[in-house]
Design a protein around this nucleic acid. Structure first.
Lengths: 204, 204, 204, 204
DNA sequence: CTCTAATCGAGACGGTACGTCTAGTCTTGTG
DNA sequence: CACAAGACTAGACGTACCGTCTCGATTAGAG
């Protein structure tokens, strides 16, 4: 059976399905989203759902993107420390103040046993949000604002990983003070004047 | 319904259930573990399973702990940098060389929509592994080996979060070099001679 | 998977299912009987239905038997012509006055592409009704009331087939007069004083 | 909606549809014939099928007629007994030697809950085959070869009904001997020299 | 020789039923 | 009373067809 032709897709159905999915998600949570429930709520044929989405996870992810995704906020202007701090606080606002964090946690959960979803999350959510920060990191290295001997992605993890780990996995406490601490530590580690702790153990 | 009396529990059934659970987990993965499959494979009554475990996640987690848990490795001796580096490489060995990483990813996935499991993971898996590192951190602070003005848990996150984030969530590449980089950066950030980037933006 | 154990069957469910099936059958006809509709109406789990009946046809047949089957009426007393005539009129009453005819037509229809149902119909409905007539036929042959050189089943078909064919297949007109005609012709054909039209063509 | 105009009908599509229908019928049987399967195999638009045929049964019946129908065989010449015997054996040849019997059984099955098909079967299949026999019956009555006090259709049923009942409904055994027996009994019943068993019971 | 209208292949659509699977509860009989 | 066994209600799963509904492309008279 040849893949369905997206050009012939009914935009009304498409919208109805994403709306229904998101509504159920908001009202009763991730596990209340069943193909049956979406079909019933969207007033749509069962096959229509299966034609365009291969799994519940893919469906929820698209609904999530469609509703939540305002595009990755561009890096602010100013000095590098300012920009990094603003960037980090952006996640706090996005994940803690809105419902995005909760939804994202569930999607990350599903992604652990769904490689397709894992890839989609990485490509469509995380990477677009890392990219501007990585670029800012490179610019700062070129300008001599931070050490140039560290891989930008590794450097970025100093901020990105603690935030996401606590917010999305461990559920540990995250507030403005924690974000500031993490940013401060990262900046210290990246300070061009720092004494790099190079190579093998015992050199500290 | 009176709560089940653990004293009257049949140890043979208990073992058979955990064995069956783990066997299915290894053979066909997390989502192949169903209550029905476990019951069938363990040759155990359905009610016996439900009497002692409230959910599939709890069951799998207990099977996982029972098979994988060799107890948290004690911190090595030596200087603090050495100890931290050894600690970090320990996760690499545990998660990448064995199947623990894969199983743990799936459990973390299930935990995103199962608060009980999330709590159990935190209490019985992560916290016991963070605790000795946190203690080592405190000792190093007391000995003046690292900065004393940073919360030990926050400091620990500099190493723990990037590793676990890449290994268990993003699936990003993790190897010895990456672990070393992360440890180096953390040690630099914690260097007592560092110029702390304190407080509000603009101080860089 | 071992076959289900009939001893453990829940009689309430059994009754509820047959009742629901028959009710739908009466209200909206054979093709309104769907597994889903029966399940909904009987307030029964879907699997329970599939556990005990392999097909809709088997289910409807059992419901039909359970409700309609008052057992095959014994042959009446009297002379053989009397008994045969009463027997034939019995079908008229059963099929035309009640709804049995309509239901039976639909079951026969389903049986044309369902060998199991065909066999069940033959064994549980038609054969029990032919049996007493066949026996009466044999007695009449022994008593010299009818020709002894004809196979009782073939002789019986002279009456049984025209009635059933018109009632159940062609839908042709069947009334008391037609039944009488058929019986008269059969009795004539079986008259011991008849000139048998033996063997090959042209001997008439 | 204006009725479709047969003049504009595409004969290629028509042929392709009937061919596909019959091919599926032969290969996988009646219930494998679905509108979707026919459309796919015929390489024809779905609407084209629905435009010209109202139901699967109508479609299959037309395909059946188109392939099987060689027209009703004319009554042979000769004496009436000869002609009746030849007529009866004709059904045996048609239904048992070819696949017509099997297909016809399934169509009769479908007709039990499809009045349109039932009517079509009667008009286009059975009646054309009864008509010449009925006419022969009338001629024989006029010539005094058989009793004139019996309705020709009722008389015809003595042969037609047993054959069709066994072949098409009960699935009972039918061979040359049975056909001969049935014809012999019918001829005996219709013998002008017979002692008619008239009217009410008890006259035997 | 266009215009108009119906037919055509293609296939998406809203529905409905299918038969399977799993969850979690309940029942029965044994030790 | 825990246990093995397994039937039970409930309901989601993904598939198969149904009959309707656009789409353009093609074709055939009618103007």
């Amino acid at each position: 059976m040849p893949a369905a032709d997206p050009a012939r897709r009914n935009p009304d159905s498409w919208r109805a399905i994403l709306d229904a999915t998101y509504a159920i998600l908001e009202e009763d949570g991730y596990q209340a989203v069943t193909m049956s429930a979406v079909v019933a709520r969207a007033g749509v044929g069962r096959q229509t759902l299966y034609r365009w989405w291969t799994s519940k996870a893919a469906l929820v992810f698209e609904a999530f993107l469609h509703k939540v995704n305002t595009g990755p906020p561009p890096m602010s202007d100013g000095t590098f420390p300012d920009r990094l701090r603003t960037y980090a606080h952006g996640f706090l606002a996005l994940y803690v103040e809105g419902t995005a964090g909760r939804r994202l946690r569930e999607l990350i959960g599903a992604a652990q046993s769904d490689p397709d979803l894992a890839r989609a999350l990485e490509e469509k959510w995380f990477e677009p949000r890392r990219a501007p920060a990585r670029e800012a990191m490179r610019e700062a290295q070129a300008a001599g604002e931070i050490r140039a001997d560290v891989d930008p992605d590794t450097a970025l993890d100093l901020v990105f990983a603690p935030l996401h780990y606590r917010l999305l996995v461990s559920g540990g406490p995250v507030d403005g003070a924690y974000v500031d601490s993490v940013v401060d530590l990262a900046l210290t580690a990246l300070d061009p004047r720092a004494h790099p702790t190079t190579g093998r153990p015992g050199t500290g």
